[in-house]
C-alpha cells in the first residue's frame, strides 16, 4: 500500500496517520520552510507551537507545522509564497 502524501512545493511528502506536517517534512529531509512574512527563515524549532518559527500555509492560511496533522492531498507552502 502506498502511504498517504501531501504536497510541499513540487514534492509529494509521505506521512503516517497521526503525524504532524513538521514530522513528515523532517522525515522527508526538508529542513528549511522558506521565509516568513517578516523575512526571517522559517523552520521547525520548539515543536510545541510556542515559537511560531514553523508557520506554513495550509489551504492558504498560516498555521504551525508542528501542531497540524498531515492530511492526504493537503497543499502546504512556505509563507513567503503566499500572494493570494
Amino acid at each position: 500500500m502506498t502511504p498517504a502524501t501531501f504536497r510541499w512545493m513540487s514534492q509529494d511528502v509521505p506521512f503516517r496517520p497521526g503525524e504532524t506536517i513538521a514530522a513528515a517534512l523532517s522525515a522527508a529531509g526538508v529542513v528549511s520552510y522558506g521565509r516568513d512574512q517578516a523575512g526571517a527563515p522559517s523552520r521547525y524549532f520548539c515543536g510545541v507551537g510556542a515559537c511560531q518559527c514553523c508557520l506554513v500555509n495550509v489551504d492558504g492560511r498560516p498555521i504551525e507545522a508542528c501542531l497540524t496533522l498531515a492530511r492526504p492531498g493537503l497543499s502546504v507552502t512556505p509563507l513567503e509564497l503566499d500572494h493570494a
Partner: peptide, 24 residues
C-alpha cells in the same frame, strides 16, 4: 540560533517521541 536545522532539544524530542525516528 535562527538558522534552519537548529531546534530546541525539546523540539527534537517531540519529533523522536511521536515518530520513533531520529533526524537524518
Amino acid at each position: 540560533w535562527t538558522l534552519p536545522g537548529v531546534t530546541t532539544a525539546g523540539g527534537l524530542q517531540v519529533l523522536m517521541k511521536e515518530t520513533g525516528r531520529a533526524p537524518q
